[in-house]
C-alpha cells in the first residue's frame, strides 16, 4: 500500500528512534511511504489556540501535498497529537465550502489546494495497522511473538477524544486498537487507570506540577498493574513518560523506572527486528531489562 507520510516534528527531533523505527517496519508490512518533506508542523493545539485560520491553512497545505502524491491510498501520521490537531482542521475545512475557499486562497500561490470529500483520509499508524493492514495479516507476519510480556497501552488524548470528530461513529473500537495490536503480537495488554488519560505534556512549560503529576501517576498505575513496559502511538506522550520520567518520579514521590516503547518499536520487535535497529538504546529509561526478558522468551520458545 502506497501512502503519503507525515512524520511530524518530534519524531525527527527529540524522538529520532521513532522515525527510524517506522522506516524499518514499513517495508515489512508492505507499506510504501512517500515522505512529505516540505510539509509544516501541525500546530499541536498551540497554533489553533493562537489563530484558527492560520492552523487550518497550514494543515490544508499538508493535506494538499498529500493529495498530490500519485497512487497514495491516503495519508499516514505517526503521532496522536498530529492526528487530533489535523482532524480538527479537516473537520472545519470539510464542513464549509466558503471557509475552505478562503483557506485555499492562501496556499494557491504555491499551486496547492485542499479538495474536500472523495473519502480522502489521514490516519495514525495505529489505525492503519488495524483498518488497512488488518490484525490477521499482522499476526501472520510475527516472527518473534511477544508472549509473556505484559504491555500497558497509552493512547494519548488526541487519538481518543472527541469521538465525534475522530470517526468513532464508523470505527467504534478505535479506543481499543492498541490493546488489540498488543494481543495480536502475542503479548498481554495490561489494564490500568491511565491508558486513555493525559500524559501532561501540553502544560510542561506552564505548570510543571500538574504535568509531571499526571505522567507520574499513570506510570505508577501501570507499574502497580504489573506492566513490563508501556507502549504509545504519540511521541509527545513519550517525551513526558520517558524523557521526563526521572523528574516525574519526584512529583509522585516514588520510584518509577518503567520503559516506554513507541508503537512501531513494539511492532518491529514482533516482526523480528533487533532492539538496536529500533533505537531502543536511545531511551532515557533503560530498555535493557526488557531486552533481556525478550531474549529469555526467545530462548525458552
Amino acid at each position: 500500500m502506497k501512502l503519503a507520510y507525515w512524520p511530524g516534528c518530534v519524531s525527527r527531533g527529540f524522538t529520532p528512534e521513532l522515525h527510524g523505527s517506522v522506516a524499518k517496519v514499513a517495508p515489512l508490512l508492505d507499506l510504501e511511504l512517500v515522505e512529505l518533506d516540505r510539509a509544516n508542523c501541525c500546530g499541536a493545539g498551540v497554533i489553533a489556540e493562537h489563530n484558527q485560520e492560520l492552523v487550518d491553512t497550514l494543515n490544508a497545505r499538508t493535506f494538499a501535498m498529500a493529495q498530490g502524491v500519485e497512487g497514495a491510498a491516503g495519508m499516514m501520521n505517526i503521532c496522536s497529537t498530529c492526528q487530533g490537531a489535523q482532524s480538527e482542521c479537516q473537520e472545519r475545512l470539510d464542513a464549509d465550502g466558503s471557509y475552505r475557499g478562503e483557506v485555499n486562497s492562501h496556499i494557491e500561490p504555491e499551486g496547492l489546494s485542499y479538495q474536500a470529500g472523495g473519502g480522502w483520509w489521514n490516519k495514525n499508524f495505529l489505525w492503519i495497522l488495524v483498518e488497512e493492514i488488518g490484525l490477521d495479516k499482522l499476526r501472520e507476519r510475527v516472527e518473534r511473538p511477544l508472549a509473556g510480556l505484559r504491555i500497558a497501552p497509552f493512547y494519548g488524548c488526541y487519538i481518543v477524544r472527541p469521538t465525534k470528530r475522530l470517526g468513532y461513529a464508523d470505527h467504534p473500537e478505535r479506543d481499543q486498537y492498541l490493546d488489540m495490536v498488543i494481543e495480536a503480537l502475542g503479548a498481554e495488554p495490561v489494564e490500568y487507570a491511565g491508558a486513555r488519560k493525559c500524559c501532561g505534556f501540553p502544560v510542561i512549560t506552564m505548570n510543571r506540577t500538574t504535568s509531571l503529576r499526571q505522567a507520574g501517576r499513570h506510570l505508577a498505575d501501570a507499574i502497580d498493574a504489573g506492566a513490563d513496559c508501556l507502549v504509545t502511538p504519540c511521541p509527545l506522550c513519550h517525551l513526558n513518560l520517558d524523557l521526563q520520567q526521572p523528574a516525574a518520579a519526584k512529583f509522585v514521590e516514588r520510584d518509577l523506572g518503567v520503559p516506554v516503547l513507541h508503537l512501531p518499536q513494539m511492532v518491529g520487535l514482533a516482526l523480528g527486528l533487533e532492539p538496536k535497529e529500533l533505537g531502543m538504546g536511545k531511551h532515557v529509561v533503560s530498555t535493557k531489562a526488557l531486552q533481556k526478558q525478550l531474549a529469555a522468551l526467545a530462548a525458552a520458545a
Partner: peptide, 15 residues
C-alpha cells in the same frame, strides 16, 4: 497558576 494555562488540552470535557 490554576487558571487558563493549567488546562492540559485533553478533550475530556469536550467529550
Amino acid at each position: 497558576e490554576h487558571g487558563i494555562y493549567n488546562c492540559t488540552h485533553c478533550f475530556a470535557c469536550v467529550e
